[in-house]
Design a protein around this nucleic acid. Structure first.
Lengths: 283, 283
DNA sequence: GCGGGCGATACCCTGCGGGTATGGAGGACG
DNA sequence: CGTCCTCCATACCCGCAGGGTATCGCCCGC
């Protein structure tokens, strides 16, 4: 019951993800034998087998599955601690993670509301098409604009900001664009691009930014479900069509649930005030 | 931006809590100079000062405050990962944290419901008067019976089980026992025992278990607010009196929000089913 | 049966984490 | 105002853990 160092956890996670000591060692930038030894020592210390080694790759034991899942969140927590501490030094600031255009037009009001506070920190916007929830979990961001249920909000506290319908971005020339409204079933065979975000080995083209995406859509090579507010910006060759049975997306302000940060709390309060219609406010 | 080892975090947390390198080193079981070096190296690597050293103790910088809070949760996460992995090995089991008598009488039904499942694991009961929420956070337990708002449920997912009124346990002979009902204000000067749980430097006697507590109450040296169901068990020399304005306690089943464990999910489902009145169930 | 791929073992070396001894600065107190 | 005491930092040393190279043993596929 000694204690486990983050290095050991990183090693184990690498092996568990690769299921191959050689590749894992390469990814970690070390040689294979020290890695084998480290994992072996870890198993010995915990008193459980983590991997079933065969001569053609390895497999996780149940304990290994658990350590993979819990170890990832532990590594995130460690990374979050160091990053947030660094950010709290001189030049302290608040990092807001969001998808470009993913604010439903609310961001100016929210920022203005926050910046009214005398103790407001500079707010740094971190645009990302990737997993913004992960940015909150590992400390790259302090607060984020996310969508429910599209994002996995576990471990995050949230404040609902708006509910948005989603529409389909599609090429003018696409046969489906001739119709006034669509259903999800109509999209069965159509390629939907994946951001690195959803690189869950799903099929479909992978795009890196919004411009690429719109290019693909205009060319008729793909379609994309976007929120109604994002569809305000016209793009050449692209039109928008309602999808009758697409679940709406709820825009939420999210932050790590464990946060006791006064600054995050202040930002959340300011955002809530900015979004709530003044009439509804309970003074 | 290297990476921070858990040892370094433990060292920093010790220093941050003691605000004294010598005492922290003693607590950690090492000498003071290596500790100083480790903290210095950590500050250097993060690029921020964590402590303001004076020749009479030290104080935390803002970055240090952040690292203390976030570092604690990170250490909890690491501990949770290893403990849960160990528990997932052979002799896998589910650990349920609860206060003795803190189940509002629901536990037998919950356990029976869970044990009906063919894949049910053995359930180990972990009785604790201490911080049961912390047991979930650091992996000593998998699920817990907690009270809202008495427990800090941040980072935990919960399922409401019951709402309980709280009553005052008081000695027969106590002057206040003569009255039929009390208000919180009546308890102003009366010592309320603290469990190590609430050892927030509050005044009042500290007790280690329920027997000690009841002894103190019977002797008139203390009173205790307990849930109505816990008051079912009579104790010699102790009576129970309603407290009109004591906020009720909600008994909740709680588990780590980040848990993806199939077993925890099964237990929660079983508990929900056991507690919901059959009529209300949406078969 | 043989070759190739993968993990384990053997062995060495460097650096880091730990120790003791001591210096230097700042506050308390006579 | 000088002295002492407290506390952290520096200097120096040692041992081991963590990393590297070379090689073995095993199993699977051909």
């Amino acid at each position: 019951m000694e204690d486990v160092e983050t290095r050991e956890l990183r090693y184990f996670v690498a092996v568990a993800e690769e299921l191959h000591f050689g590749r894992a060692a390469e990814r970690l930038g070390i040689a294979q034998p020290p890695l084998s030894r480290a994992i072996r020592r870890l198993e010995h210390r915990l008193g459980v087998a983590l991997l079933d080694r065969t001569s053609h790759g390895s497999r996780l034991t149940p304990a290994g599955e658990v350590l993979l899942a819990e170890g990832r969140t532990a590594l995130d927590a460690v990374a979050a601690a160091t990053r947030r501490a660094q950010r709290a030094g001189p030049r302290a600031r608040l990092v807001l993670a969001m998808k470009p255009g993913g604010d439903a037009g609310l961001l100016p009001r929210i920022l203005a509301s926050y910046e009214e506070r005398p103790d407001a920190l500079p707010v740094e916007l971190a645009f990302s098409l990737g997993d913004r929830a992960a940015m909150l979990r590992d400390g790259r961001a302090d607060v984020g604009l996310l969508h429910h249920p599209q994002n996995d909000l576990r471990g995050l506290a949230t404040e609902e900001l708006a509910v948005e319908r989603r529409v389909l971005a599609i090429a003018d020339t696409h046969p489906l664009a001739a119709r006034d409204a669509l259903r999800l079933a109509d999209l069965a065979g159509v390629p939907v691009p994946q951001f690195p975000e959803a690189a869950h080995r799903e099929p479909g083209p992978v795009v890196g930014d919004v411009a690429e995406l719109m290019q693909l859509v205009a060319l008729g090579r793909a379609v994309a479900l976007v929120t109604e507010s994002a569809a305000q910006r016209p793009a050449r060759g692209v039109t928008y069509r309602p999808v009758l049975d697409a679940a709406p997306a709820t825009l939420v302000l999210a932050w790590p649930e464990s946060s006791r940060s006064r600054e995050v709390a202040a930002f959340v309060t300011a955002a809530r005030r900015a979004v709530a219609p003044p009439a509804t406010g309970t003074t």
